[in-house]
């Protein structure tokens, strides 16, 4: 068993070496396919980070009329928290709203004087509502537009953010669609190229296959070197792709930091924490593809 494995490995390495240029071309094409997949992963990660960063700054501020007492606002807060779409609701009582206003206009004595002349707190309570996902804000707004709240709510300031959220969601959808399209095209090209490359590799070894069959080598011994070669192709392509990806990150990180000022996005950290999954799956997918291609390519030569 060990002897056969050693011989299969030796034959595979011989094949790899004898068709060096074909082997290099195969690995390069596999790398291109893997790089395109990684590009899509990176775009997704960047888009997601941008979305989360903006999302974090977004909320719907609901300003209640001053006549509405705090208990009523607490009830509405409880109702909001029951919604699936809502992740948090910050409650700022009337006094808090006044304090916030004063703080915001502490450098404007005219406003502060006018406020003093009123002799009462003109502000109502405020609720700052955060959704679980930016796409869910319209549903929260719709909930607040119910007729029973109409007399209680002075103003909702979601409109300013709505545009930004729509933009981000549209951008994310576009990135996803673009990514999937590119991945599908590259995937299809990769499959065709790999199948053809393996077929050429098998074709160049049809002599050996014929002799092996003639002298009684088992089918698995004949397939072995091609499977092992597929393993070498897949492993080398994945390792080189990982190297190129990390080099690319070092190059791109300063530009990303400038682009997303204030947003913490380290692609290296993102990849480090998901490296096993990302590259493991890519390796398995490429190996599966090359192994299946070689299985079918060899099959036609197994009849001697």
């Amino acid at each position: 068993m060990f002897l056969s494995l050693a011989r299969v490995s030796k034959l595979a390495l011989q094949q790899f070496h004898r068709n060096l240029w074909l082997s290099i071309a195969t690995i390069s094409l596999l790398m291109l396919s893997l790089l395109s997949i990684n590009l899509i992963i990176v775009l997704g990660a960047v888009g997601q980070a941008a979305k989360l960063a903006v999302q974090d700054k977004i909320d719907v501020s609901v300003y209640f009329k001053s006549k509405v007492d705090n208990e009523q606002v607490e009830e509405i807060r409880a109702d909001l928290l029951k919604l699936n779409e809502v992740s948090a609701v910050e409650y700022i009582p009337k006094e808090g709203s006044l304090a916030r206003f004063k703080e915001r206009h502490k450098d404007d004595p005219v406003i502060l004087e006018s406020l003093q002349e009123l002799n009462e707190n003109p502000f109502g309570a405020t609720l700052a509502v955060k959704a679980k996902d930016s796409e869910q804000y319209p549903r929260i707004i719709a909930f607040l537009e119910d007729a029973k709240y109409e007399d209680l709510i002075e103003e909702k300031n979601f409109d300013d953010h709505e545009f930004v959220i729509k933009k981000i969601n549209a951008l994310m959808r576009n990135i996803r669609t673009f990514g999937l399209t590119v991945a599908s095209i590259f995937g299809l090209i990769a499959i065709l190229v790999v199948i053809n490359t393996v077929r050429v590799a098998v074709y160049t070894h049809r002599g050996e296959i014929g002799v092996m069959r003639l002298v009684g080598a088992s089918n698995w011994f004949i397939r072995g070197p091609f499977l092992f070669e597929a393993l070498i192709f897949s492993f080398t392509a994945t390792v080189l792709t990982a190297a190129v990806v990390y080099l690319g990150f070092n190059f791109a990180q300063p530009y990303l930091n400038n682009l997303f000022e204030g947003i913490k996005l380290s692609l290296t950290s993102y990849y480090n924490s998901n490296a096993a999954t990302i590259f493991g799956l890519q390796f398995l997918a490429i190996f599966f593809l090359t192994a299946v291609s070689s299985f079918f390519a060899v099959r036609r030569y197994l009849k001697v």
């Binding site: 002298v215 080598a217 011994f221 004949i222």
Partner: peptide, 11 residues
């Protein structure tokens, strides 16, 4: 030798 190698004969 190849004919023996591929059927797992000892070296």
């Amino acid at each position: 030798a190849f004919a023996l190698q591929v059927v797992g004969a000892p070296s």
